[in-house]
């Protein structure tokens, strides 16, 4: 399934994770692992090695097992993602309405393949299996992650857009450029529904 491996890297801030574990207020067991990984993925935008080591120490689950679990589920990533994650739904309903063409067009414009991140860490392109909004396919969802390391030449990007996911429905390849354009400017996006 996944070919990514853990990155060797400098220390990351673990205070939040530590507090989160403390707030759980119960003795950690094995079934806490996935929720903890979900929290970590959400906080950092990926799973940094030091955070996993911290979870390992807290739960007494060996790193090998944690790696096994984290690499199994598609929700987790070992590498940082771009500031904006573009998810193209390739579920069946979107597929029969031409999702592949939409995805290729996005990849072409950004110069990345499925699963890759642009060099400036602005965009990550991903396929998702189904978002359950089949009636309005093809669907593209652009989400901004809370942390995007090294985005845009190391300069912290003004958080102009609200965090969270924006849905675009019935997207055609022709509409892609205009949609992406909204995320390459620094101005806040005011409107945005539809596509």
């Amino acid at each position: 399934m996944k070919k990514e491996t853990l990155r060797q890297e400098a220390a990351v801030e673990l205070g939040g994770l530590e507090r989160h574990i403390k707030n759980l207020n119960h003795r950690l067991s094995r079934s806490d692992l996935i929720p903890l990984l979900q929290y970590t993925q959400d906080s950092y935008g990926y799973l940094p090695k030091p955070a996993l080591e911290f979870i390992s120490r807290s739960t007494r689950i060996p790193m090998s097992r944690i790696f096994g679990v984290a690499s199994f589920y598609s929700q987790f990533s070992f590498v940082p993602k771009g500031k904006f994650t573009i998810k193209v739904c390739v579920g069946t309903a979107c597929h029969v309405r031409g999702a592949d063409k939409v995805k290729s067009r996005i990849g072409e414009l950004l110069g990345v393949k499925d699963g890759e991140t642009t060099a400036d860490y602005r965009f990550t392109l991903e396929s998702v299996a189904c978002l359950g909004t089949c009636a309005l396919g093809p669907i593209v969802v652009i989400g901004s992650s809370k942390k995007a390391e090294g985005c845009c030449g190391g300069e912290p990007v003004k958080q102009a857009l609200s965090l969270g996911d924006k849905f675009y429905g019935q997207v055609s390849p022709e509409k892609v450029q205009e949609i992406l354009g909204r995320y390459t400017k620094e101005e806040p996006i005011l409107s945005g529904a539809g596509g």
């Binding site: 993925q41 994650t85 998810k87 390739v90 991903e126 998702v128 299996a129 965090l163 969270g164 849905f167």
Partner: peptide, 17 residues
């Protein structure tokens, strides 16, 4: 083709969705 499920939804507390 790497079909991956959505990742955004990881505890989307606070997200628009």
């Amino acid at each position: 083709v790497k079909v991956r499920h959505s990742e955004s939804a990881v505890g989307t507390t606070g997200t628009e969705a």
